Amino acid sequence: MPPPVKKMHLVLITGMSGSGKSVALRALEDLGFYCIDNLPPELLMPLIKLERTNQADQLAIAMDVRSAASLPQVPSQLAQLKTQGMQVDCLFLDASTDTLMRRFSETRRRHPLSKSETHDHDHDQHRALAEAIDLERELLSELRDQAHVIDSSIIRPTQLQSYVKSFIDSPGDPLTLVFESFAFKRGVPNDADFVFDVRMLPNPHYEPGLRDLTGCDAPVVDFLQQQADVQAMLTQIHAFLDHWLDAMARNHRSYVTVAIGCTGGQHRSVYLVEQLNALFAPRWSTLKRHREIAARQTY
Rank of each mutant, 00 (worst) to 15 (best):
P2M: 12
L10K: 04
V11Y: 00
L12N: 02
L12M: 07
I13R: 07
M16T: 06
G18P: 08
S22W: 01
L25S: 10
L25F: 01
L28S: 06
D30K: 08
L31Q: 12
Y34V: 11
I36S: 01
P40C: 04
L47Y: 04
L47G: 02
E51T: 15
T53H: 14
N54H: 14
A56T: 15
D57R: 00
Q58N: 03
S67H: 13
S67Q: 12
A68P: 03
A69L: 14
Q73S: 13
P75Y: 01
S76N: 10
L78K: 00
Q80W: 09
K82W: 00
T83A: 09
M86H: 08
D89K: 15
C90K: 01
D98S: 11
M101T: 01
R103D: 06
H111D: 02
K115L: 07
H121Q: 14
D122N: 10
H126C: 08
R127K: 10
A130P: 08
I133L: 01
D134S: 09
L135P: 02
L135E: 06
E136M: 00
R137V: 04
R137I: 03
R144T: 01
D145I: 09
H148F: 14
D151G: 05
D151T: 05
D151K: 01
I155C: 03
I155R: 00
T158H: 06
L160A: 13
Q161T: 10
S162N: 14
Y163L: 14
V164Q: 10
K165S: 14
F167C: 08
I168Y: 09
S170D: 11
L175K: 03
T176Y: 02
R186K: 15
R186Q: 15
V188H: 07
D191Y: 04
A192H: 09
A192R: 04
D193P: 06
Y206C: 03
Y206K: 03
Y206H: 11
E207L: 06
R211G: 04
T214M: 07
D217K: 00
P219K: 00
P219G: 02
L224E: 10
L224Q: 10
Q225K: 12
Q225L: 08
Q231N: 12
Q231R: 10
I237L: 08
H238Q: 14
A239I: 02
F240I: 07
L241P: 07
H243R: 15
W244P: 14
W244V: 15
W244C: 15
L245M: 09
D246C: 05
A247P: 13
A249Q: 14
R250I: 12
R253H: 11
Y255K: 05
T257L: 00
V258R: 03
V258D: 09
A259G: 08
I260E: 01
I260R: 01
T263Y: 02
T263H: 04
H267I: 12
H267N: 11
R268E: 10
S269I: 05
Y271T: 13
E274H: 12
L276A: 08
P282L: 04
R283Q: 15
R283V: 13
R283M: 04
S285E: 08
T286V: 09
T286F: 03
T286L: 04
L287R: 14
L287M: 13
K288S: 15
R289A: 08
R289T: 09
I293A: 05
A294H: 07
A295C: 04
